[in-house]
Amino acid sequence: MPATPAKTALVTGASSGIGEATALKLQELGYTVYGAARRTDRLQKLADHGIRPLEMDVTDDDSLRSGVEKITAETGRIDVLVNNAGYGSYGALEDVPLDEARYQFEVNVFGALRLTQLVLPHMRAQHSGTVVNITSMGGKIYTPLGGWYHGTKFALEALSDSLRLEAKPFGIDVVVIEPGGIATEWGGIAADKLEKSSGTGPYAAQAAAVASSLRSEANAKRNSPPTVIADAIGKAVTARRPRTRYATGFGARPLIALRRILPDRAFDTVISRAVGLPR
């Protein structure tokens, strides 16, 4: 009998952090893995491990189409899609230019869902597949000066829930991963954008406090390694009946639980104190 072809996985934002760790984990589990990023030169480490580098910009429709066509032409299937590409852009709602706000939605929401649209027909034809959307504990909680970022993650949570119902009859699972604090470049990038948007003006004092929290060495030491998220994804894609959500990484479960339990204003106080907002 012919050998059963290896299952295929596509991981976006694979050049570092969670994406890189996930690509390595899925390869360890036996998948043929395509690691996607805008710059393939940043994928050399994965290529050295046998993972197939793929140039892909999630805001460019032609790039998404050509990437999916390349994978299906080479392997004939897509079994797992991990929508990991994304970034955090902080700043007061009043200060952030709408072009920046729209771009964050383009990357974090529309890019992920457009790629999902392109992959779903192949999964439906197989009557199997798993779409993994990386949101954040920030898709369940909120922080000051993070409204546009949280908006993208709240949106991706809701879209994932609707998609889970729509895809179920076709044998397709939809899983949400909600990372807590993870040791990546994310905090520094968010802090830089925060200072650019709101470092001066009426929100400057809040911006200084939140940027300090984002860059805090004490917080960084408590953050979990990206492999914690990769392990959760590995469990999800190999489970016969995966959970709909996996909250993992520093702070994710307790903060999501607090948000569920506390009244809004009580949670406002907890978060304000946690990021050191001036009183």
Rank of each mutant, 00 (worst) to 15 (best):
P2T: 07
P2C: 00
T8I: 07
G13D: 13
S15L: 05
T22H: 04
T22R: 06
A23C: 04
L24P: 02
G30M: 12
Y31S: 00
Y31N: 00
Y31T: 00
G35I: 04
A37H: 06
L43G: 10
K45Q: 12
K45P: 02
L46A: 10
A47F: 08
A47C: 06
R52I: 14
R52A: 02
P53L: 09
S63E: 10
S63V: 08
I71N: 08
T72E: 12
G76K: 04
R77V: 12
V82Y: 00
N83L: 00
Y87R: 11
Y87S: 14
G88D: 03
G88E: 01
E94Y: 01
D95A: 14
V96E: 04
L98S: 14
L98F: 14
D99L: 08
A101Y: 03
R102H: 15
Y103F: 13
Q104T: 09
E106N: 15
V107P: 01
F110T: 13
R114M: 12
L115F: 03
T116P: 03
T116K: 03
L118Q: 07
R124W: 02
R124M: 10
A125Y: 00
S128L: 11
G129R: 02
I134K: 03
M137Q: 13
Y142M: 07
Y142R: 11
T143A: 15
P144S: 14
P144K: 15
L145H: 07
L145V: 05
G146C: 05
H150Q: 12
G151N: 11
A155H: 09
L156A: 08
E157S: 04
S160R: 07
S162H: 04
E166K: 07
A167D: 09
A167N: 11
K168V: 00
G171K: 07
V174T: 13
V176R: 15
G180S: 09
G180E: 06
W186I: 09
G187D: 01
A190F: 05
A191D: 10
L194S: 05
K196W: 13
S197K: 05
G199Y: 05
G201K: 11
A205M: 04
A205S: 13
A207G: 02
E217M: 00
A218K: 15
N219I: 06
A220D: 06
K221T: 07
P225K: 12
P225G: 08
P225L: 09
I229N: 10
D231I: 01
V237F: 02
P242I: 01
P242L: 03
T244F: 14
R245L: 09
Y246M: 04
T248G: 06
L262T: 13
A266Q: 11
D268M: 04
T269D: 06
T269Q: 13
I271T: 14
S272C: 08
V275Q: 04
P278N: 05
R279G: 13
